[in-house]
Nucleic acid binder design. Structure first.
Lengths: 141, 141
DNA sequence: ATACTGCTTAAAGTATACTTCAAGTCAAGC
DNA sequence: GCTTGACTTGAAGTATACTTTAAGCAGTAT
């Protein structure tokens, strides 16, 4: 069983151009073709796509994904290298999550600030200074 | 008390070019200059930089940061709009964290797979098939 | 005086990741 | 037979976010 590029578009949300681009960039091995030279994506291709999407979504650049995929094509002698890559990528992803959580606290403070400021503005309209480039007089940044 | 662009570079880790770029893109209001036309960043500028960096790090595009900053310069009449922006951005950031955590599970499985595969390869070297573009025969993607 | 360091500008260049375009092929439906 | 729609290609174009370049100025060290 296999899928046309249109079906893969429908299933993955990627565009056909992106799928061809990934193939041209060797993120995917050359996709099998039917008699009319149209791409036939099989289950294994879909699995690769899912992995590529995961790595891409977690911030791995195309170049490094390509490097990883290339190592996968070279057999068991590259297992250790691939292990190093996924391990480092897990660390990077955890670090990214932790960083976002820290930044989220900053954003939370902004949300609280504006919630209060909006409430105050409704109670006392036109009572506040207009300070160019600053959200208010005594703001906690 | 204020800082030269070099001091800001040292404190923030941004480059001088980036600082000038942010100013030219109106993410910062025009920075005050000394007698020799050199930029003097004051505490308020540093606070803005921190906020901009937070928004940028959490994936807000320059264009939207500029829009937010512009609203900040228009006084209390834009408080509600600014509240909407930071609220939406908090949602987006939480969604991003959740998505990363889901992807992390996928990566964790890869790490476990390679850990085992490396161990197995050491015990039984050269016993495994070389399958182009696939990490092994019975792999759980 | 001169060289050096740190800053200034506008404009052009770069990296990443696609996206769009133009022209063409193929199979199916009318 | 002819149109339509989904696909094909290589090449050029786009968006974002900077970075680099070239030329020059101000203040300090020798």
């Amino acid at each position: 069983m296999s899928y046309t590029i249109g079906e893969v578009v429908a299933r993955t949300g990627l565009t056909a151009s992106t799928l061809r681009y990934y193939e041209s960039e060797k993120l995917l091995s050359p996709i099998r073709r039917d008699a009319a030279n149209r791409r036939c994506y099989d289950k294994a291709d879909m699995d690769w796509l899912e992995l590529i999407t995961c790595l891409k979504n977690t911030g791995m650049p195309i170049q490094e994904i390509r490097r990883f995929v290339a190592l996968c094509g070279q057999g068991d002698k590259t297992l250790a290298q691939r292990y190093d890559i996924v391990l480092a990528h897990r660390q990077a992803t955890m670090a990214r999550i932790a960083a976002l959580q820290t930044e989220l606290l900053h954003i939370d403070r902004k949300v609280a600030y504006y919630r209060d400021a909006c409430a105050a503005a409704k109670l006392a309209p036109a009572q506040r200074a207009v300070d160019p480039h600053c959200e208010g007089g005594a703001q906690a940044t």
